[in-house]
């Protein structure tokens, strides 16, 4: 079966990346292999683990369940877009301070999921937070510290906002 090459421009963390890929190239692979953004991790490549979570137009999605050709014209954000000028953002700091990572494999996915939660639902209930986090797997931390870190970041950001 022929699979022609597709020329696309992806908008990643606000920057345009022109790439040439086969249609079967997943967004996750395109980020890592064609754009050099290896912060997005691949755990399972079939939608189970959430390690590949990125934001598309502000919503968390699994980058292994999207083709790069489908992401053209959409705003994609990855973990590389979180720190500004080498300084960790409040959510990243909260992960470090609350011991929300050990091996770090799942962390990019949880950071992007957490980013979406903070942006769309900062006052999220504990129950809804657990439900939202259940889409991603972590084999190290036991999840409690991840939930705690997201809550801490939400609190830090609301006091900063109020100050």
């Amino acid at each position: 079966m022929s699979d022609a090459m597709h020329d696309l421009t992806l908008t990643l963390n606000g920057q345009a990346h022109a790439i040439r890929v086969e249609a079967r190239r997943t967004l996750a692979d395109a980020l890592r292999e064609d754009c050099g953004l290896t912060g997005t991790h691949l755990g399972c490549e079939h939608g189970v683990c959430g390690a590949c979570t990125v934001l598309m137009d502000g919503q968390p999605v699994r980058a292994c369940l999207l083709f790069a050709v489908q992401a053209e014209g959409r705003a994609i954000r990855t973990v590389e877009g979180l720190a500004k000028g080498g300084a960790l953002n409040p959510l990243q700091r909260a992960f470090a301070e609350n011991h929300a990572l050990q091996c770090g494999y799942c962390t990019p996915g949880f950071l992007m999921l957490g980013t979406a939660i903070l942006e769309t639902d900062p006052g999220i209930s504990d129950e809804a937070l657990v439900e939202a986090l259940s889409s991603n797997l972590c084999r190290c931390t036991g999840y409690a510290n991840i939930a705690r870190a997201i809550r801490a970041a939400a609190d830090a950001m609301s006091t900063e906002g109020a100050a």
């Binding site: 079966m1 022929s2 699979d3 022609a4 597709h6 086969e22 249609a23 079967r24 490549e45 050709v69």
Partner: peptide
């Protein structure tokens, strides 16, 4: 864990 090649249509 990579899809086999296919032709992509975007109607």
């Amino acid at each position: 864990m990579k899809p086999a090649p296919f032709a992509y249509h975007d109607p």
